[in-house]
């Protein structure tokens, strides 16, 4: 690497609307390689939309989105070659076995068959799926599918990773495993763009946290910076920022609905 590396991800004035619904409102962000970005926000904040734009899946936006120096709008295919994407929806061709599915995905990335076979075995083994290599995925649990999905996003060794709720459905041990894996990947200079609304995970692994609320960046910085500014854990920060703190009253209100 040269002295002044290209930013891994750059968003300039990025906006997106569906009809009358403004989902993203001019987002500006610059992310350096080797960082793990925790992109968090409540449901419907625009996290998945951002990721879809950056992954070259949605060209209908305003502003600029640049991934490793490539303008996403101009050359989505080049972007797709460099990145790994794990979508929020765990859709798989589930009549296939994990090996067959990964062989397919690897082929789309033009990986040689031998490399695919070796890597997918190793990676599936890492997630403890060795006994299921030749089982059809329609019998898999949500967690097992998620593991296959993670492998399919990682196996071509992408420089930049977009993970949308990557831990959903995973058991505690797998969660620790994935966290550790992400740290190692970042240490190797890979960029991880991590979307979640589970704040406790994000605060532990992210170098930098971006808090999205109603399509704008509400706060961003290192976890300890945010902590200094707002105190306490991220969860409290989160609720302070989004302005809803009185959870106890809300819960009581919920219970009163039982009274006819």
């Amino acid at each position: 690497m040269t002295g002044n590396p290209l930013p891994a991800i750059e968003m300039r004035n990025l906006s997106k609307r569906y009809g009358n619904n403004q989902v993203l409102r001019s987002i500006d962000l610059c992310i350096q390689p080797g960082q793990i970005i925790g992109y968090i926000g409540p449901n419907g904040a625009g996290k998945s939309t951002t990721v879809r734009i950056l992954a070259g899946l949605d060209g209908d936006y305003e502003g600029e989105a640049i991934v490793a120096g490539v303008d996403v709008k101009n050359d989505p295919l080049a972007v797709k070659k460099m990145i790994g994407y794990v979508p929020e929806v765990s859709e798989l061709y589930d009549t296939l076995t994990p090996l067959e599915f990964l062989d397919f995905v690897g082929s789309l990335h033009e990986m040689p068959g031998k490399v695919i076979a070796e890597r997918s075995r190793k990676m599936l083994n890492f997630f403890g799926l060795s006994p299921n290599l030749n089982d059809r995925m329609d019998t898999f649990s949500k967690g097992m599918r998620q593991k296959v999905l993670l492998v399919s996003g990682l196996m071509h060794n992408p420089k930049i990773l977009f993970l949308d709720e990557p831990l959903s459905g995973l058991d505690a041990n797998s969660v620790i495993l994935v966290k550790e894996l992400l740290n190692r990947l970042a240490a190797e200079g890979k960029t991880v763009f991590y979307c979640s609304h589970m704040m406790d995970v994000v605060e532990k692994i992210s170098n930098r946290i971006v808090l999205l609320h109603k399509g704008t960046v509400f706060a961003e910085g290192r976890f300890d910076e945010l902590k200094e500014r707002y105190g306490d854990t991220l969860e409290n920060i989160f609720s302070k920022l989004t302005g809803s703190t009185d959870f106890s009253t809300k819960a009581s209100e919920f219970l009163t609905s039982f009274e006819d």
Binding site: L57, L77, K80, K81, P87, V89, L92, H109
Partner: peptide
């Protein structure tokens, strides 16, 4: 096929 959107489209396939 809706699944194609999640499996094929994120890949570098023209």
């Amino acid at each position: 096929d809706v699944r194609d959107n999640y499996i094929l489209l994120p890949r570098p396939v023209s």
